[in-house]
Design a protein around this nucleic acid. Sequence first.
DNA 1: AGAAATTTGTCCGTATGTATC
DNA 2: AGATACATACGGACAAATTTC
Lengths: 138, 138
Amino acid sequence: MPTPHYGQPRYRTIADELRRRIESGEIAPGTLLPTERALTAEFQASRGTIRKAIAALQSEDLVVTEHGRGTCAIQQRHESVADGKADRGKRQIPADSDLAAIFAIDVGAILIEEQRITRARGTVQEVTRVYRIPLAAQ
Amino acid sequence: MPTPHYGQPRYRTIADELRRRIESGEIAPGTLLPTERALTAEFQASRGTIRKAIAALQSEDLVVTEHGRGTCAIQQRHESVADGKADRGKRQIPADSDLAAIFAIDVGAILIEEQRITRARGTVQEVTRVYRIPLAAQ
DNA sequence: AGAAATTTGTCCGTATGTATC
DNA sequence: AGATACATACGGACAAATTTC
């Protein structure tokens, strides 16, 4: 097969299909996707194309890939948990030296930290923290 | 050259060099970068590697690429030099009392921390950190 | 207007390095 | 240490958009 990518490129249709499986729960959050090798077999595409599809999902924060391990589906953000308890919080913290360097601000300057805890069947799966500069300071 | 990517991969050092040229004004905002072909000649790297380096700059909103035209440097607001800190990183850290309580693990137990830095026009917008328990421990 | 050249986009196959299990 | 799985890199081929002649 040369390169017949009329309409939509192949890596995109593959990404769409994988996204569907994740969002439908066919690939449960927290579980590994099939290996790249398995995906090349299933979609009859080269490994490079499979990796491009997965890269698209990564940029959507739908999956996380770890070197020798595999690619893992991430718990969805706007999914209301069964217990309904929103494990979210927002607070202000002073920047430590690490964050200060990244943001190019002074150590001790105030940052906004938003925290989100995702659970599955009661156990904590992930803790996500997003830091940013207060709007007032910009 | 086979594939000796000790320390830093090739595409990243190339991306760093191109970023330096853009931020130093050597490649003026609004002007086209050298063609992929020219870059392969200069850096003695394959086209795929060059494209990966450019893709990195794209995700930093430092350049935009148009199909039959080329890759164009973006007008940017000055800002501190990128200190070479990777936009994505993963590391293992011991749980502090806060995280230990959330995960219901011992203080000092190892957690995986993944960090992602999102930028817009060169400036840091958000720092996202995701913590989770190593799979080996589950 | 049209053809050719240029340039980026997609895809394949292979080989080797590196991290994890 | 061995097997498995992802990461990097090369080279070639063809497609599609743009520019040039």
